[in-house]
């Protein structure tokens, strides 16, 4: 095993080009578990800790450019207004120690369906900025997840940042685990209202081979809200609409039975989370003043 320590982004890209099998390590919260438990013996470890720009973010007009290694703790603390869904999701990641090290780049690189950031990114809308010595490209988040623990990155590419749409409305995120802290998602759900475009977007974690959006549910809700004039009136959403949205969200799942939960439970829980989050976000949209983010 070789340990590569590029001091700059350019050096990192060059190293990755030279050694496409090199495994990038930033927070180490995935890679080191695999090494400690002898699940993986990469030929090269490519340390990204020394590249400062990966831990920085820029708040722009439309989007936040979030460096791949910005720790979840920083997202929780500093980007709550701009990226509320991701901030809530960040707060549910593992433990304080892990949140201090891990970042969105790791979730994306591993592309585990259980990664907590995915539903929030899907719901908010985002593009992954991947770069190699060949150049830079932006991969829409919807096209990023290509299979179980597989993503759209080429062998020589590294994730530099994620461009995430700034919230134009309320966002929520929940995950189910069988413990009240430090738990991997049995399944997760994220919801973002986009009043500017009068759309809603969703994200589902751990309930399909990849993180997915509940597109049919989104389309149904978009249409129902439009037809009912809900965006203008701010009326309470009819329970039948919420129920149908929840059912369709569950329908977007393609889960399995595993040690963490049954497929049936996952579908059920996604429906409950979808319904609750629609209630929370819509209440907040209606501006009735109740704090909908809880203390999460």
């Amino acid at each position: 095993m070789d340990f590569l320590r590029p001091a700059t982004w350019e050096e990192a890209l060059a190293a990755k080009a030279e050694h496409p099998t090199a495994v990038p390590i930033a927070g180490g919260t995935d890679v080191m578990v695999e090494i400690n438990f002898d699940h993986r013996r990469p030929e090269y470890l490519l340390d990204l800790n020394r590249i400062g720009e990966l831990s920085a973010w820029t708040v722009g007009e439309e989007t936040v450019e979030l460096g791949a290694s910005v720790p979840y703790t920083r997202i929780m603390e500093h980007l709550r207004a701009e990226l509320p869904g991701l901030a809530i999701a960040s707060h549910t990641v593992a433990s304080p120690q892990i949140r201090n090290r891990g970042g969105v780049g790791g979730n994306l690189g591993t592309a585990s369906p259980a990664g907590d950031a995915h539903p929030a990114l899907l719901a908010a809308g985002a593009e992954v900025e991947a770069e190699s010595v060949r150049g830079s490209r932006r991969i829409p988040i919807d096209a990023f997840y290509t299979g179980v623990k597989r993503n759209a990155l080429a062998a020589d590419e590294l994730i530099r940042s994620v461009h995430i749409k700034k919230a134009d409305g309320p966002q929520q995120f929940s995950k189910v685990g069988t413990r009240n802290a430090m738990v991997i998602a049995v399944c997760a759900f994220g919801l973002a209202l986009h009043p500017a475009t009068r759309t809603v977007r969703t994200g589902i974690g751990s309930a399909a081979p990849t993180p997915v959006r509940a597109r049919v549910a989104e389309e149904f809700l978009n249409a129902a809200l439009e037809e009912g004039g809900f965006w203008e009136s701010g009326r309470i959403i009819t329970p039948s609409i919420a129920r149908e949205f929840a059912t369709l969200a569950a329908g977007a799942c393609n889960p399995i039975d595993d040690v963490r939960g049954t497929a049936r439970y996952r579908r059920h829980a996604v429906a409950v989370m979808a319904r609750r989050q629609l209630g929370w976000t819509w209440e907040q949209y209606r501006g009735t003043g109740r704090a909908m983010e809880g203390a999460a």
């Binding site: 707060h91 549910t92 189910v176 009240n180 704090a291 809880g294 203390a295 999460a296």
Partner: peptide, 17 residues
């Protein structure tokens, strides 16, 4: 007033208010 999820089932995972 506000729900502190840390005192609720699901805890930090923010599943219920």
């Amino acid at each position: 007033e506000e729900a502190d999820v840390r005192a609720l089932p699901g805890g930090l995972s923010n599943t219920t208010h």
